[in-house]
């Protein structure tokens, strides 16, 4: 079934804040004359209303009050137990919770998460590693809370691995490396195969290349001076498997750290300058995007920069890599 209007995707893009002011104005003008887009707009609006209007399950007032008492009594009890250092108790409780999470996940690891783990990823505890592993929407996630974990990913187009560390994440595209986390911060990333570029967001444009046999460690002076995000991008123009290492500033759980958006160049031919021109959409705090986002954003940024031929090539690349991608229609138009 082909879409009745090539701009239909804009309706949802607008709703989700993916359009800038000009594009939004253009979409609104277009909608006035396009029945298909108007209908799509109404359909999405009605769906939203239906979901929002759905009344939640009844929760009787007495049960609410009873629970309130329990919450406050529990909180008071925690304070009374250690009145002079409630913060330390809180930290210990949080730590204990993390330990429980880690241990349970560890014990359940072989059958804990519903989808089968991707076979081409090997994880090895190299010293006190507390981690969980999960498959979510086709991406393999590893949550490393403490200790050292050895990670080996066999290069495979289907495999996509994200290693979440307390102060950031490490995106792997097929390599072998080791990550150490201590005291809630990443203390070491060493690479056996492939290579990564570690870059501080606060003005360090060149970053630091970590190749096979090398090790990344935070610079203690810089760590103290700034809580700015550390951002790394894959190395362009290389046939070697490459990883993007993204380390954010200290991130108190459960709030995510504020990071500047940096688009890891998805393509092997991506140039650093092109990825640097990509700006974040409205709403400052942005996480490093997925490969699909990066590919899409690159095409869009090139288009905005007036570099049509490069934009067309980037869009074609998107279409090839993500035939069922969310921005397929949009990229088809750019690729023509």
């Amino acid at each position: 079934m082909s879409a009745p209007c090539a701009r239909l995707w804009e309706v949802e893009a607008e709703r989700d804040g993916r359009l800038d002011d000009d594009a939004r104005a253009s979409a609104t003008r277009h909608r006035a004359h396009c029945r298909a887009c108007r209908e799509e707009h109404t359909a999405l609006h009605s769906l939203g209303r239906r979901l929002a209007d759905e009344e939640g399950p009844a929760w009787d007032a007495l049960a609410q009050k009873r629970l309130r008492g329990k919450v406050l009594a529990g909180a008071n009890e925690a304070r009374l137990r250690a009145p002079s250092s409630h913060k330390r108790v809180a930290a210990l409780v949080a730590f204990a919770a993390v330990m429980v999470i880690g241990l349970v996940a560890w014990k359940r690891a072989p059958k804990g998460t519903p989808p089968a783990p991707i076979a081409s990823i090997e994880l090895r505890d190299e010293g006190g590693a507390i981690y969980e592993r999960a498959t979510l929407d086709g991406t393999e996630h590893v949550y490393l809370r403490a200790g050292t974990l050895g990670i080996k990913v066999r290069h495979d187009a289907v495999t996509h691995l994200l290693v979440h560390v307390p102060d950031g994440e490490i995106e792997d595209l097929g390599t072998t490396f080791h990550v150490s986390v201590h005291g809630g911060a990443t203390t070491r990333v060493s690479v056996d195969e492939g290579r990564v570029l570690v870059r501080k967001a606060n003005g360090d444009r060149d970053g630091r290349l970590v190749s096979a046999g090398e090790t990344w460690e935070p610079d203690p002076a810089l760590e103290k001076a700034s809580t700015q995000a550390t951002v790394a991008t894959p190395i362009p123009a290389s046939a070697a498997p490459t990883s993007a290492v993204v380390l954010r500033g200290p991130s108190p759980e459960p709030k995510p750290a504020l990071t500047k958006r940096t688009v890891p160049a998805a393509s092997a031919s991506a140039s650093a300058s092109a990825s640097a021109t990509v700006s974040a959409p409205a709403g400052s705090a942005v996480h490093p995007p997925s490969e699909e986002d990066a590919t899409y954003m690159r095409a869009v940024s090139l288009l905005r920069a007036g570099r049509r031929d490069e934009a067309r090539a980037a869009a074609r690349r998107y279409v090839v890599l993500y035939p069922n991608g969310l921005r397929r229609q949009e990229m088809d138009v750019v690729a023509e």
Partner: peptide, 23 residues
Amino acid sequence: EVEGFSCQEVADMLEIPIGTVWT
């Protein structure tokens, strides 16, 4: 859609890329 958070807020809450939220 129900709680009315922006996609960016959802991305921050879940600590996932905003593109993943959109998808």
